[in-house]
Amino acid sequence: MSESDVIETRGRFSIHFKLYITVLIMVVITEFIGIHKIPVGPGTIVLLPMLYAVIIGILITPQVLGKPIKILQKVISSKEVELAGGIVMISLLPLGVKYGTLVGPAVEKIVKAGPAFLLQELGNLGTIMIALPIALLLGLKREAVGASVSICREPTLGVIGGRYGISSAEGTGTLGTYLVGTIFGTIFFGILGGMAVLTGLHPYALAMACGIGSASMMTASSASLATAVPAMKETILAYAATSNLLTGITGLYSVVFLALPFTNWLYKKLQPRIQKGKEAV
């Protein structure tokens, strides 16, 4: 079913009804629990309602708690799951507007920080230097290239899929990072955002780092960072949103022209040294 067919209401009333009521209950519960901040030294573990929501959401699906608790499948079946996927894209829009209203008033400040915004995009290449050697140490071969080339959101999936095929070794690696990001990304970045203050890096620099090319991961990390450093909330959210928008535009080109050639080059250099005795592939 295409994305526009999924949200069709005609003849699909009960699917819509069950899903919205479920989400309403989830929103009421998670907002009732509210924000919890756990100080860890100068850093903070920030637990936001959205974090509980994503966890409850995963838990109530047919393949998780729905498996042992059959009655749950009567409410959330694969049809409701499919509809939820179609709604996510639209439910992101009010957040998009909200981000715009945070960036607009700060536009002068953002133009001033322009060079930092552009150059930190190169920081995405930092992933290769850290992840590739360790992937090789773990014994991965060409999967290592696909997995560590970037944070592997949709543009990367497209590039690697086009170049090597999605079922190739490289494709398996990219798909792995993509999938882990999809499932654990918001939880991971939601906790990292508040904890990152511990590194001593300035919250504004961390805010720019939150824009990694995924709206939900950027939201989780920047909201958590902003809750940990409330005095800088406005600027943190504005910087994160701007950086994410920029990554959305530059991400694809950066993978094609920088990240992928660099990963392949580094693989050729490191593979024979790290995986001695095993032939290069």
Binding site: T22, A53, I58, T61, I76, S78, V81, G85, I183, S216
Partner: peptide
């Protein structure tokens, strides 16, 4: 953000 992540959580359940 809360409704988005509620829908997102449900939609990724199948990928687990």
């Amino acid at each position: 953000t809360t409704p988005i992540l509620a829908f997102a959580g449900i939609s990724i359940g199948m990928k687990v």
